[in-house]
């Protein structure tokens, strides 16, 4: 068959099963809500959630904007700082020895536990949330980029040495380009973590954001709005993840179709 024929068919094969499963779950929930005798604050009918989503759209959009903003900024800082740390770790032994163990410590501390301190330091604005998103997201970027910087054929390094290549030539011509696909896969993990960090931050201290909306509405037993916020949150998660994936695809194309 022609490729044009195969494309939509493959798309259908990947999109249809999860869509049908999701619709099935919605149907069960709808039935439970209507005929199960469960109160709406426990299981809101999917139809009611959609209705709420439309009714409260401005409020949900405003909060979504804050959540997306904090997530993306935290993620961007995580990528920049993560790559810089990785370069430092790979290029300078003492830096590696001094910093790497601390990175692991920073990673194992549950980020929720740091949130209150961040508020003490940075107040109730966006800053503590951005820092939290960054803190939770940067680790996979560092680990993956270090791997990519190090996984250069030692024979190629010999060859460069035989040409008297400088350390910065090795870094910019070989190590960094080699690490790009690794950094991208680290960034894909990081973007999902940044969203988690953002919501944790919003739970702890926030004026706007979907995390705030979820806390307020669930306290009021306005479960339908909570669910509507959850839908918005999943959409943000998907869109930002796809965005990073698309960026990774662009980088792979720039590297001549190279993938890990």
């Amino acid at each position: 068959m022609s490729a044009a024929n195969r494309g939509p068919r493959r798309l259908a094969a990947t999109v249809l099963p999860p869509t049908l499963t999701f619709l099935g779950i919605c149907l069960v929930l709808e039935a439970l809500a209507r005929f199960g005798g469960l109160p709406a604050y426990i299981v809101p009918a999917p139809s009611a959630v959609i209705e709420t989503l439309i009714d409260r759209l401005p409020r949900i959009l405003v909060n979504s904007w804050y959540t997306t903003y904090v997530t993306v900024v935290g993620f961007a800082i995580a990528v920049v700082v993560g790559v810089l740390l990785a370069v430092g770790i790979v290029s300078w032994r003492p830096f590696d020895r001094a910093v790497s163990p601390l990175l692991v410590v920073a990673q194992v501390i549950p980020k929720v536990a740091i949130a209150p301190i961040l508020i003490v330091y940075l107040g109730y604005g966006l800053e503590p949330r951005i820092v939290l998103a960054f803190l939770i997201a940067f680790f996979p970027v560092v680990v993956n980029t270090v791997l990519g910087l190090r996984s250069v054929d030692p024979k190629l390094l010999d060859l460069l040495q035989s040409l008297r290549a400088t350390r910065s030539q090795v870094l910019f011509k070989v190590r960094l380009p080699n690490s790009l696909p690794y950094a991208v896969s680290g960034a894909k993990i990081a973007i999902t973590l940044a969203l988690i960090g953002t919501v944790v931050g919003e739970f702890t201290a926030g004026d706007f954001g979907l995390g705030v909306l979820i806390q307020v509405t669930s306290a009021q037993l306005d479960t339908a709005t909570t669910f509507a916020a959850l839908i918005a949150l999943s959409l943000i998660g998907l869109i930002t993840y796809w965005g990073v994936g698309a960026l990774g695809g662009l980088i792979a194309r720039m590297q001549g179709g190279r993938v890990l």
Binding site: D153, L159, S162, L163, K173, P177, N178, R258
Partner: peptide, 17 residues
Amino acid sequence: PPRGLGLVLQQPALLEW
């Protein structure tokens, strides 16, 4: 490493990108 030297190894070790 002396100037004026070319090295070819068992593996091509090319830059994939």
